[in-house]
Amino acid sequence: MAYVAEISRTNPTCLLFLIDQSGSMADPVGGTGESQKKKAEAVADATNRLLQSIVLRCAKEEGIRDYFHVGVLGYGVQVASAFGGALAGRDLVPISEIGNSPARLDERTREREDGAGGIVKEKFRFPIWFEPVANGGTPMSQALSRAREIIDGWLRQHPECYPPIVVNITDGESTDGDASGPARNLRQLKSSDGEVLLLNVHMSSTRATPIEYPDSDAALPDQFAKLLYEMSSILTSGMRAAAQQEGINTSDATRGFVFNADMVSMIKFLNIGTRPSNLR
């Protein structure tokens, strides 16, 4: 059986994010009723929130447990580690180091139910690791090939890990050739517990309804979305069960692909222990 390895500090897995930083990312996000937020800003925000939620999933009172090693590759003018500050230039970094090394902490406010029918505002510190970048072409094939090298190195050291997960966030228009081949090569890497999982987040300027985890490409609006859908792994049964509990309908053909939609929910699909059903 695949995708059943325990994710633990003694058997961690890795997550690698590929971030499109091309010039076209300066265009506004499509979708419904969004403000004129640039795609690069939306991606930086999504990446910061993804990292934050991974850190929080691994944080305990005594510190952050290294269930994951995480990398972020930017691709635009060049394909390179997108970490800044103390983590600059590094490929895969233990999640505890990431949690303890944000570039800065923003003070934000959020609203929360007080349990007595009212709403309370509470302040919290939000970590920022990435700033928006939009420059150059979209060397997605090169980025996927580099990802393959990094993951290959990880798997040599962690042959029995839960299969690494690669999340590619892009506006979909590769400028260095068809990315399907490099994507296939990446997905074929495997640990003893299964093949590498490639998930894609398509952030398009097309004004179309957001689509989460489809099981066919029929409703996808353009060829770029269809290509990214084809490149995406089919969700594991564990991810499907977690997705169902988040209210997302799935079938055995459902792929790890979202179109103009949020992928932070994906982090909840990674099972590292008991998660209360009343915590959303």
Binding site: Q245, T274, R275, P276, S277, N278, L279
Partner: peptide, 17 residues
């Protein structure tokens, strides 16, 4: 047994059910 049971919370809004 699944890994997402309803649990008792320290935050009262999560205990409404």
């Amino acid at each position: 047994f699944d890994s997402m049971p309803f649990l008792l919370a320290t935050t009262s809004s999560f205990n409404s059910k």
